[in-house]
Design a protein around this nucleic acid. Structure first.
Lengths: 172, 172
DNA sequence: CGCACAAAGTTTAGGTCTAAACATGGGGAA
DNA sequence: TTCCCCATGTTTAGACCTAAACTTTGTGCG
């Protein structure tokens, strides 16, 4: 007897291709598409959570990256781009939005230097810490939907996959 | 001896928070942030791959969803939204773009009915099949960076996580 | 010295999504 | 039958991102 996959699982997608184009290899879907769908479910949830705290994911990532770098809480745009895995242009825009809200400030190094520094403001630091505490507490609950053993195993396998992918595809 | 995490691993992020805000729980980062980073690496790679084939991910997803539904290759916008995990507005826009390229056509059911149907055109079908074959072959290579046992285990764990998340957070 | 190139940022155009406001066709209740 | 409500789609405003063109510096080599 053939078991029908749940409408929303990636197995459903694999069945569709096997039926329509039986010669295409569908194994990767169970990893790649599945990763994307989980990422989207989590992103949608995070968006809702952050909206309730009057924050958004892009700004939070910026503030958190500065906060985690430790005092004096400043980094160059280039360094931010590397750490956030974003293009330089995206950083320029993120910084502009955050600066408009007073969460960061920028300094064109004294003496008209080319080097630019983005610094977390006092407001940015306190806002970030508030939100990070709430967000990580909430997300801890989510990952605890999986038993501890599976969580550990999953984290392990994901780590291995990322290392392999970055080695194969390069960083940027 | 303390081992320093690789600059680009999520362990680095966890270390940052442990150092700066030792009381926040960082376990979820090994799953959630890791999933996002892998999703981004894969998305960046897919964007490049598809650009070389003169295609984009959003359109491919639309065409593929219609193609997988089997003859006569048509679905309503609402059904597309559910299957692609997108808002209704996003579908309207995807369809408009694809229609402008002649990849799909839309029918406002005969007799001025309310029901709208999006249909894959002949061009859309052939373009989709070409691209899907190349893309899935490429992505099969990527997942094979992990040994078969780990791939299976990872797919299994990801499936469990998605089920748990959807049960907890709801569909849309 | 001076110039051309590399490195670092910014700008701009365009794609894509969500959320929320706005249509509109159909069906059911009175 | 008539009217109102709901489900289904579309529109619009605004967030975000990438890619590519452009700007500005600093620098190393003739």
């Amino acid at each position: 007897m053939v078991v029908m996959a749940e409408e929303h699982s990636v197995a459903w997608i694999q069945e569709g291709w096997r039926r329509e184009l039986p010669d295409v290899p569908v194994e990767s879907i169970a990893v790649i598409t599945q990763v994307w769908r989980i990422a989207k479910v989590l992103a949608d949830d995070r968006r809702r959570t952050l909206a309730a705290l009057d924050m958004d994911g892009a700004t939070l990532d910026l503030l958190s990256t500065l906060r985690r770098s430790g005092p004096p809480y400043e980094l160059s745009p280039g360094e931010l781009a590397r750490r956030c895995l974003l293009s330089a242009g995206a950083i320029t825009q993120r910084v502009a939005r955050a600066e408009a809200e007073g969460l960061v400030s920028t300094d064109r190094g004294r003496s008209g230097r080319r080097t630019v520094v983005v610094r977390l403001s006092e407001l940015g630091r306190t806002r970030n810490e508030e939100v990070v505490r709430q967000l990580l507490a909430h997300e801890q609950e989510l990952v605890e939907l999986l038993p501890a053993g599976q969580r550990g195993q999953l984290a392990e396998l994901l780590g291995g996959l990322q290392v392999a992918l970055v080695a194969r595809l390069g960083d940027g």
